[in-house]
Simulated scan of single mutants.
Amino acid sequence: MKAAALLLAGSMALAACASDEPESGSGGGGGGGAAAEELKIGLAYDAIGRGDRSFNDSAFAGAEAAIAEFGGEYREVTPNEDGSDRAELLAQLAEQGYNPVIAVGFAYDEIIADVAADFPDTTFAQVDGSFELPDGTSKGDNVTGLIFAAEQGSFLAGVAAALKSETGRIGFVGGVDVPLIQTFQAGYEAGATTVNPNIAVDVQYISPAGDFSGFNDPARAQILAQGMYSGGADIVFQVAGGSGTGVFQAAAAAGARAIGVDSDQYQTVDDPALQAVIMTSMLKRVDNAVTAFVGSFVDGNVEGGTDLLYDLESDGVGLATTGGFIDDIQGEIDGYRQQIIDGDIEVPTTP
Results as ranks from 00 to 15, higher is better:
53 R>Y: 15
132 E>W: 12
21 E>K: 15
133 L>E: 03
233 A>K: 01
275 Q>C: 06
165 S>N: 12
45 Y>M: 07
86 R>P: 00
149 A>K: 04
244 G>P: 01
176 V>K: 01
323 G>N: 05
214 G>T: 07
157 A>Y: 08
185 Q>H: 14
18 A>N: 10
264 D>N: 15
233 A>V: 06
1 M>G: 03
291 T>W: 05
193 T>H: 03
108 Y>N: 01
61 A>V: 12
146 L>W: 00
41 I>D: 01
64 E>V: 05
217 D>Q: 10
35 A>H: 13
74 Y>V: 01
165 S>K: 11
341 I>Q: 12
247 V>F: 04
303 E>L: 07
96 Q>H: 03
254 A>K: 01
218 P>S: 07
257 R>H: 12
71 G>C: 07
76 E>W: 12
141 D>Q: 14
84 S>Y: 00
233 A>Q: 08
14 L>I: 14
216 N>L: 11
123 T>A: 13
277 V>S: 09
180 L>R: 12
281 S>L: 02
259 I>M: 06
39 L>Y: 05
67 I>M: 12
77 V>Q: 00
341 I>G: 03
257 R>M: 09
316 G>A: 15
133 L>F: 02
95 E>F: 01
137 T>I: 03
62 G>V: 09
79 P>I: 10
215 F>Q: 09
72 G>M: 14
44 A>E: 02
338 Q>H: 02
270 D>Q: 11
55 F>S: 09
301 N>H: 12
15 A>V: 04
36 A>M: 02
77 V>I: 06
143 V>I: 10
30 G>N: 09
304 G>E: 06
147 I>V: 02
214 G>P: 00
336 Y>S: 11
280 T>Q: 14
264 D>K: 05
146 L>C: 10
228 M>F: 11
73 E>N: 11
241 G>E: 02
156 L>W: 03
137 T>S: 14
35 A>Q: 10
269 V>T: 12
259 I>K: 08
163 L>F: 15
89 L>C: 01
63 A>L: 11
19 S>F: 01
228 M>P: 08
287 D>S: 15
98 Y>R: 09
99 N>Y: 07
70 F>R: 13
124 F>K: 07
1 M>F: 12
335 G>L: 05
97 G>C: 02
85 D>G: 02
211 D>C: 06
96 Q>R: 09
41 I>H: 06
301 N>R: 04
219 A>W: 00
139 K>Q: 14
